[in-house]
């Protein structure tokens, strides 16, 4: 399972995430197979990361089956953007906001990719 405390801590130090997310007040949900992670972001900082998404939902969600997350994260290259462009992973919700904080999402993917590379089990079933 992805260590969400470590994820939040690393995002709060990632320059792209902090900078691009500076003008954002919302929540990003990740659906990695059956695993759901809800990340509340306010002005470039993660203020809560939980596996119990609140009933009021998210701003946008990046979701897909495990095999496609594996394609995006388990290889040497971070392929999240490619996975979304080619339809392996889906973005749902407010896709205008997803586009607007593109660099924050890129920062998120960089952190997840680095965690997957450093620890083969970091993304659970992904490896």
């Amino acid at each position: 399972m992805l260590d969400i405390e470590q994820l939040a801590a690393r995002l709060n130090e990632h320059p792209d995430f902090m900078s691009s997310g500076k003008y954002f007040d919302g929540a990003i949900q990740l659906e990695i197979g059956n695993d759901r992670i809800w990340i509340k972001v306010f002005m470039g900082r993660v203020i809560l990361a939980t596996r119990q998404p609140p009933p009021f939902g998210y701003t946008f969600c990046i979701k897909g089956p495990l095999e496609h997350w594996r394609f995006a994260m388990a290889g040497k290259k971070n392929r999240l953007h490619e996975a979304v462009v080619t339809g392996r992973l889906k973005v749902e919700g407010n896709t205008i906001e997803y586009a607007r904080i593109s660099r924050a999402v890129y920062g998120l993917s960089e952190v997840m990719h680095a965690m997957a590379q450093a620890d083969g089990q970091a993304l659970g079933d992904l490896t």
């Binding site: 691009s20 953007h81 205008i96 586009a99 593109s102 660099r103 890129y106």
Partner: peptide, 20 residues
């Protein structure tokens, strides 16, 4: 209005579309 942060999107697309 449909493509906010076009420059950032393009920048990331450039990294992603380049080969290993």
């Amino acid at each position: 209005s449909g493509v906010p942060s076009f420059a950032d999107q393009s920048y990331i697309g450039g990294i992603a579309a380049s080969g290993t």
